[in-house]
Nucleic acid binder design. Sequence first.
RNA 1: UGGGGUGUCGCCAAGCGGUAAGGCACGGGAUUUUGAUUCCCGCAUUCGUAGGUUCAAAUCCUGCCACCCCAGCCA
Length: 549
Amino acid sequence: MSLPEATNFIEQIINEELESGKFESRGNELQVRFPPEPNGYLHIGHVKALCINNAAKEKYGAKLNLRMDDTNPAKEDYEYVNSIVEAVEWLGIKYDKLVFASDYYDKLYEIAEKYIIEGNAYVCDLSAEEITATRGTLTTPGVESPYRNRSVEENLKLFREMKAGVYPDGAKVLRAKIDMASPNINMRDPVIYRIAHVPHYRQGDKWCIYPMYDFAHPLEDAIEGVTHSLCSLEFENHRPLYDWVIQKAGFPAPVPRQIEFARLNITNTLMSKRYLKKLVDEGFVRGWDDPRMPTIMGLRNRGVPPKALKKFVSDVGVAKNYSVVDIAQLDECIRDELNAEAERAMAVLDPVKLTITNYEGEEELDFEINPTDGSGATRKIKFSGSVYIDREDFALVPPPKYKRLTKGANVRLKAAYIVRCDDVKLDENGRVEEIFCTYFPETRSGSEVKSDVKAKGVIHWVDAKYGRDVEFRQYRPLLKDEQYPDQDYAERLNADSERVFDGKCEPYVADGENDKPYQLMRTGYYKKCTDGAKTVLSEIVTLKSNFNK
RNA sequence: UGGGGUGUCGCCAAGCGGUAAGGCACGGGAUUUUGAUUCCCGCAUUCGUAGGUUCAAAUCCUGCCACCCCAGCCA
């Protein structure tokens, strides 16, 4: 067979295994899984794991299950499973099956009894505190539990009673019988089942004992037929236990293999469900899908295309180095995708009226929908000689190198004419109220006629007669405070993370199709731009309805 | 101080004994009806460090240093 070229260390491992014939017994069919716990919404960090697994599907034809790792009923809920499914589908990742760890509870219980019968597990009556105290430390071995050598019969009886609800929470646990002196603390007789009289969102009151991650996860993998269990670095220490659990359960080879990679970190970006949940619970944002959130649904609502996220993850690569990717790299991917795909539209956030004194009547102009896609496609826009421009695009006293409109100077109204500012009307506070210009008919956009009239800059505009009033919201993602990284993030949110503008836009933009991101054509909307010395990053302006749907 | 990992440009990251890919960021220039895009050009004599093996080392060996993870009845 011909193997795909490996682009990272995981694929290298897979190629080597394939070459060695490790999976011949299963027809070289591989299987992976994406196993979030449904206790929160997926964030951009999860996109990495998702894409790595998806790559195995695309490159090796591996099966990819979306598995809800729901073994802790206290934290999980349907709201989260729904949001996870929605996010995965929005990303355009096709999984083979949606499965639930909770569907394996019976099987898991069976295996636990097998452990007991074979002397690999015992019921322990020590309290949580006592277990901690007898676990030893990093440098000293633990002490064996006095209940470690109960008979199989007694263990079985006790475990069945645990299951039957005879004991209260915390009274007893089932522990794997491994090695209290292991230098790897995870191997010091880890708890594999605990009592929790908590109803499960899917199983209801059927169970009052629940399996722990270290027991459940490897078995879920083995039961499903997963060949490669990809997870993050912090589980490296668990791998010996992962292997032990599967081996003692007696699954035949080839058995699943856990491979760890570095999770995604982004500068200034909150990447912990715990903090994100706090922001939601304490009302700092409108919800998990608020456009300022680094969740997949938040990014979607901010107008970030799924392809941008995938490109980002692919650009960043997969390795085992602990790393923090500069958020500028994400910004670049978003810009890149928007530049390639987004339709261009004009809008004005802070409108100022501009009247062309020598223009009469009205006309339709051609506006290029996307100058970068090579299609040359245009749409018509109406022009009546009276428009709104952005307050920022006019300066009474222009800063150095200013390229936009100022008194006595020329500027091009995008897709229309070059105009010259003759006069300005100020209100009683000295604020610009209206701008009066003359236009140069021979400078009509696309005109064959050569004109001597030049303009340094191009600004956008919205026709005063045909434009629509619209509410814009501008977002910056919620950023961690660099100065106080350990402070309570929620207390230090960027107060400027959401700004609302009563602006104007072309009727085209507000015609009900605004669920797609437009690249609004103006400095700083969403693009990399240098405005004097100021670079605006990570901002996007969307119509209000963009995130309310 | 036990164990498990990782150290290649400001940030990611290739490299797997034959003489340092690429992306982001940054700097310079050209085109441009988005100060965008595009386009050139520049950006590690050096791979945590000290030795060793070799004709040849980021790649092999040894010592040292730094950082991360592990003592939940969370995942």
